[in-house]
Simulated assay, not measured.
Amino acid sequence: MMDFPFGRSVTRLRAGVQVDPYSGEETFSDWGSPSSLEIEGAFVAHTSTSMLATATREQALEAKSLFCGEAEIRKGDRIVDGDYTYTIDGIPPAADTNPFTNWTPPREIPLTRYEG
């Protein structure tokens, strides 16, 4: 497993699940009191920033990548890095292991943050 000697901790937030009292099925995510998990030794890197504009709205999109080991992360989770909270919109890739050396590189997980 790759280690970032000067990596820092980020926090993974995961929404709770609301269950429909009639059907017993999960109905939607509840962000009122999310569970949290500290991910140590992570690295958050800038990838791009863009402006999205329409006739009635202007919005900025910031894209970053989270590099980390095998922390339990899935689509829809949020990552808190300092003052900013990012969303994981895609499916985080599995951690691949080299079959010859047993080396596992860090996973790159795309993050997004919208403003405006």
Score class of each variant (00 low, 15 high):
residue 38 E to M: 10
residue 55 A to I: 12
residue 96 D to T: 13
residue 78 R to H: 14
residue 71 A to E: 12
residue 108 E to Y: 00
residue 85 T to E: 09
residue 69 G to A: 05
residue 2 M to A: 13
residue 108 E to S: 15
residue 86 Y to F: 15
residue 9 S to W: 01
residue 87 T to I: 10
residue 115 E to A: 15
residue 65 S to M: 12
residue 81 D to Y: 03
residue 64 K to F: 03
residue 30 D to Q: 04
residue 89 D to I: 09
residue 10 V to F: 01
residue 43 F to H: 08
residue 28 F to P: 00
residue 54 T to F: 08
residue 17 V to K: 08
residue 21 P to C: 10
residue 52 L to H: 14
residue 98 N to Q: 05
residue 44 V to D: 02
residue 81 D to K: 01
residue 58 E to C: 08
residue 114 Y to R: 13
residue 116 G to D: 05
residue 90 G to L: 12
residue 82 G to C: 09
residue 2 M to V: 07
residue 113 R to T: 03
residue 74 R to Q: 11
residue 112 T to A: 12
residue 106 P to D: 04
residue 108 E to K: 10
residue 73 I to N: 01
residue 54 T to V: 10
residue 1 M to D: 11
residue 111 L to P: 02
residue 97 T to H: 00
residue 1 M to N: 12
residue 31 W to H: 03
residue 85 T to Y: 02
residue 49 T to E: 15
residue 31 W to F: 04
residue 66 L to C: 07
residue 71 A to C: 06
residue 33 S to W: 02
residue 33 S to R: 07
residue 9 S to F: 01
residue 7 G to Y: 00
residue 111 L to F: 01
residue 73 I to S: 02
residue 59 Q to H: 02
residue 32 G to H: 07
residue 44 V to Y: 00
residue 89 D to G: 15
residue 22 Y to K: 11
residue 65 S to F: 07
residue 3 D to P: 03
residue 49 T to Q: 15
residue 99 P to V: 08
residue 2 M to E: 11
residue 20 D to W: 09
residue 30 D to T: 04
residue 108 E to C: 07
residue 83 D to Y: 10
residue 69 G to D: 01
residue 76 G to S: 06
residue 78 R to D: 00
residue 28 F to K: 12
residue 71 A to M: 04
residue 53 A to L: 10
residue 95 A to N: 03
residue 51 M to N: 12
residue 19 V to W: 07
residue 99 P to W: 09
residue 61 L to G: 09
residue 65 S to W: 10
residue 101 T to M: 05
residue 36 S to V: 06
residue 1 M to A: 14
residue 8 R to M: 07
residue 10 V to A: 02
residue 61 L to H: 08
residue 97 T to Q: 07
residue 31 W to C: 01
residue 99 P to S: 06
residue 111 L to E: 01
residue 44 V to E: 03
residue 17 V to L: 09
residue 23 S to V: 11
residue 86 Y to P: 02
residue 115 E to M: 13
residue 92 P to I: 06
residue 63 A to V: 09
residue 60 A to G: 13
residue 104 T to K: 08
residue 92 P to N: 10
residue 16 G to H: 03
residue 94 A to H: 07
residue 46 H to D: 12
residue 43 F to K: 13
residue 43 F to W: 11
residue 83 D to C: 06
residue 93 P to F: 05
residue 99 P to F: 10
residue 4 F to Y: 15
residue 73 I to M: 03
residue 46 H to W: 11
residue 25 E to Y: 11
residue 60 A to Q: 15
residue 9 S to M: 06
residue 2 M to Q: 13
residue 3 D to V: 14
residue 49 T to W: 14
residue 21 P to N: 12
residue 86 Y to G: 03
residue 89 D to E: 13
residue 71 A to G: 06
residue 24 G to M: 11
residue 63 A to Q: 15
residue 52 L to A: 14
residue 54 T to N: 13
residue 36 S to T: 15
residue 7 G to W: 00
residue 27 T to H: 02
residue 46 H to N: 11
residue 1 M to Q: 09
residue 9 S to E: 08
residue 45 A to Y: 02
residue 65 S to H: 13
residue 44 V to P: 04
residue 33 S to G: 06
residue 111 L to Q: 04
residue 46 H to K: 09
residue 29 S to D: 15
residue 61 L to C: 08
residue 47 T to S: 13
residue 40 E to F: 10
residue 13 L to S: 05
residue 27 T to Q: 10
residue 56 T to I: 11
residue 26 E to L: 04
residue 94 A to C: 04
residue 75 K to F: 00
